[in-house]
């Protein structure tokens, strides 16, 4: 098994406030993991520690086989990042910026090819600030992957997107064949992009697994509806069995709704807050 990220007992506090209290996280090569959690749960802090931008208070962390706190340029060249709300280099031309960023890496993609792949070849000589929101985002992705990273960090990449830009972005990410650690508020995004989901609550990973496993673990009650009533239950199968017996056959208008990841997640967050 090829481990790309391994964190054990990761701790971090800002002054009095403990943000991370013993976080464990693993990423294997090739998989996409979504880090979910409410605002202030420590998602960005976790990513910043893994990128070597922040020094952790305690814990063992390895990213691509090295401690990020000591990561040198050769290590940094194997990472890529797409953050939220970047407005940098507004006066630069698109191709100039991409070429400049590419020149930092030992073996970058051909920038013309990358612009074409991302549908930006018509804007190569535009100034960055003249791009639309969706184009700007595609440029951010181009800048994040131009160095052929082995590991890509996406920190809330679709905040403020309209639905079409969001779908475009998802298709783009799915077409990349690399290891990705993604943070998001958007449950549907996590369900669509991630092989595994980790929910960050109270400074640690509360639940992790495939989206289905997470939904099952933190199962919010399912909703069972039929012609004459409805009921929320943790065991919908058992209720359906009782209804069948009561009606002596098919239950009229029977409908069983399993909780979505979103419902399970909100249920979990509420339980943690209580």
């Amino acid at each position: 098994m090829d481990t790309v990220i391994s964190a054990r007992g990761l701790r971090m506090s800002y002054g009095e406030r403990q943000v991370l209290r013993g976080l464990d996280l693993d990423l294997r090569r090739g998989e996409t993991v979504a880090l979910l959690g409410p605002n202030g749960a420590g998602k960005t802090t976790t990513i910043e520690i893994l990128q070597g931008l922040r020094i952790r208070a305690a814990g063992d962390v390895e990213v691509l086989g090295e401690d990020p706190a000591r990561g040198a340029d050769a290590w940094r060249a194997r990472l890529g990042t797409v953050l939220q709300n970047w407005h940098d280099h507004p006066r630069w031309q698109v191709r100039t910026l991409l070429d400049h960023v590419a020149a930092h890496y030992p073996d970058p993609w051909d920038t013309d090819e990358l612009l074409r792949t991302l549908g930006l070849d018509g804007h190569a000589t535009s100034r960055v600030r003249e791009l639309s929101g969706g184009q700007r985002r595609r440029l951010d992705v181009a800048l994040g992957i131009v160095g052929r990273p082995e590991l890509l960090f996406l920190d809330e990449p679709t905040t403020g997107f309209d639905p079409e830009a969001r779908r475009e972005f998802h298709e783009l990410i799915e077409s990349l064949d690399i290891t990705i650690l993604l943070t998001t508020h958007d449950l549907a995004e996590a369900e669509r992009l991630a092989d595994r989901v980790a929910v960050l609550l109270d400074g640690g990973i509360a639940v992790h697994g495939t989206p289905q496993e997470v939904a099952a673990t933190v199962q919010a009650p399912s909703l069972v509806r039929w012609r004459d009533g409805s009921e929320r239950t943790d065991d919908p199968s058992e209720l359906a069995w009782r209804l069948h017996q009561r009606y002596g056959g098919p239950v009229p208008g029977l409908e069983i709704r399993r909780p979505s990841l979103e419902e399970s997640y909100l249920n979990l967050v509420e339980r943690s807050a209580a």
Binding site: A74, R76, L79, T81, L83, D88, H104
Partner: peptide, 10 residues
Amino acid sequence: GALLRLRLLP
């Protein structure tokens, strides 16, 4: 964000 982007580059 230019400073952050540069900090993330080798």
